[in-house]
Structure formats: C-alpha cells, structure tokens
C-alpha cells in the first residue's frame, strides 16, 4: 500500500504533470501550425508551380516542422540533444551507406521535378516501356501501360536512360516509309500520296505533308511520306492512312515490291533461261 502511494506520488508529481502538459501543448499546437502553414504554402504556390512541385514543398515544410517539434519535445523531456544529435549523426552515416540507392533515387527525383522532362498524363517511352505517367514521386515514376499494367520506374533509371516524351508537343509527324517498283512513275506516286494525305480527315493541312525520295533500294525505290496530325489522333490516323495507301496503290496498279532476287545471265532484259525436266516412266528427260 505504501509502495503504491509512492508510485502514485512519483507519477502524479506536479513537475511531471507540467512537463506532460507542455509536451501535449507543443505537439498539438505544432501539428495545427504545420497543417495551416503547409496548406497556406501549397495554396500560394499552386498557381506558380506544378502540382508535383507544390506537393514537394508542402511535404518538405511539414517534415522539417515535425523535426523541430520533435526536438522541442525531447528538450522538454530532458533529453540531452547534443548527445542525441551526435548519435544520430553516427546512425545517419550507417543508414546512408545502407540506403545509397534510395538516396540516389531521391536526388534523381529532385532533378526530374526541377527539369520537368515530362508531367503527369504524358505518354513516355523508356526502353521497352510505353505508357501514361500516373505520378512522379521522390523515389519513382508510376506508369500505366496501354495494356493496363502498373510499372514503377526508379527515378535513377530515368536520369540515366534515354526517355522519349511522346506527347510533349501538341502535333506530331508520322513518317511512313514505303517503296515502289522501279517501273512506277514517281510523279504519279507523289501526286497520289499527297492526295491521300489531303483527303484523310486526321491529316493536318499545315504543316504541309512532306514527300521525300529517299534512295534507290535493293528491291524498289524508297520513299517517305511525312504527315502531321494532332497527338491524340495517333491510332485512328495511322490505321486509316495506311489502309488508304494500300487500297489506292492497289486500285491504281502501283506495285509495292517485296524483297526478291532476280537472276540474269549477263543481260538485264532477258530472263534467265529455265529448262524444266520431267522424269518419264522410262527414265528419259523432257525439255521444256
């Protein structure tokens, strides 16, 4: 009974109660102030900075403030901060060595956020990954592929590798490489291709479609048609113009050559003479 009394006296000592009250007030007021501060800062920066930068600033303020509140609480509890900070430094070095990759990702994330090579909802290509950016976080970028898979790409990889932002600009050019047989009239082919581009509803009039004579290829004349379109029309545009080129070439009798080898015996005009042999019952051959 006496022991219980001593314990109660120790716990409910007026100094302890005062300290507990102070800690409570510091934590409660610190939390409220931090919430208000981060909200106000995010509101103020929302118009000037991107959503990603705003989120980063808000989090930085909140965590820095929370660290200060923690130090204040420890001081109230009588913990010697110099010793604690010294120990924290040693622990920090150990953790730093252990988490080099994470730190590298965080620093890469900061570069990505400041450099802004892409934004949320952009379509990017990294190695074999093509998809829409869902979020850009401190450690990684989350991508949703077109077959609805979730891919987490570490920020460090994005800094080191070549990233293509497919939807950075509002319009794009589709370069259609095709070849026609050597016998075809290139002027007619050019007029036909430009006419196909003009009639396609997704093709932009301006910038004008580009026709280019690339080279004399192994199997035919290599050409290119460069046509501009609005970035959101990629698939309907590509599907329609490819189909139209195939159909119009067929209807106009323009040959799209496929890889083949022609054999000649010294003359480019005469075909290689062929003799067809047929085995008869008596084993004698027959000339064809």
């Amino acid at each position: 009974m006496e022991l219980l009394g001593e314990l109660t006296e120790k716990i409910f000592n007026i100094d302890v109660l005062i300290t507990a009250m102070r800690v409570l007030i510091i934590v409660a007021s610190g939390f409220v102030i931090l919430k208000i501060l981060s909200f106000a800062v995010s509101k103020a920066t929302a118009k000037r900075f991107s959503a990603q930068s705003t989120m980063l600033i808000r989090k930085a303020i909140f965590y820095a403030g929370a660290f200060i509140v923690l130090l204040a609480v420890l001081k109230q509890l009588g913990v010697k901060l110099t010793a604690l900070l010294g120990a924290a430094g040693i622990v920090g070095i150990a953790v730093g060595f252990a988490s080099q990759t994470s730190v590298s990702n965080i620093i890469s994330g900061l570069f990505l956020i400041s450099e802004k090579p892409f934004a949320v909802n952009d379509i990017i290509q990294v190695d074999n990954i093509v998809g829409v950016i869902m979020s850009i976080d401190l450690l990684s970028v989350k991508v949703r592929t077109f077959d609805n898979q979730f891919i987490r790409v570490p920020n460090e990889k994005l800094i080191k590798t070549e990233v293509t932002n497919v939807t950075k600009f509002p319009i794009r050019r589709l370069n259609i490489n095709l070849s026609v047989a050597y016998k075809e009239d290139i002027g007619k082919v050019r007029a036909l291709l430009l006419d196909i581009a003009r009639e396609n509803p997704y093709c932009l009039d301006n910038p004008e479609p580009l026709f280019a004579f690339k080279e004399f290829g192994d199997h035919g004349i290599e050409l290119m048609l460069g046509v501009w379109f609005v970035k959101t029309d990629y698939w309907p545009f590509k599907n329609s113009i490819m189909q139209e080129i195939k159909e119009r070439f067929e209807s106009e009798g323009i040959e799209i050559p496929f890889p083949h080898i022609s054999l000649y015996t010294g003359s480019a005009t005469h075909p290689f003479p062929i003799r067809i042999e047929k085995d008869d019952d008596d084993g004698k051959g027959e000339n064809g």
Binding site: P170, I171, R198, P201, Y202, L204, D205, N206, P207, W228
Partner: peptide, 19 residues
C-alpha cells in the same frame, strides 16, 4: 460541310483550327 484540320502557328505553341 466536312472541314479539314490545320495547325496555325509553330508546332510548339500554335493552335488547332479548321482550314
């Protein structure tokens, strides 16, 4: 009437329009 699309301005800052 069907109107074809065109781009007015440079490819970075122009605007989509009918032609």
């Amino acid at each position: 009437a069907p109107l074809s699309n065109t781009w007015f301005g440079d490819p970075l800052n122009g605007e989509l329009a009918y032609s």
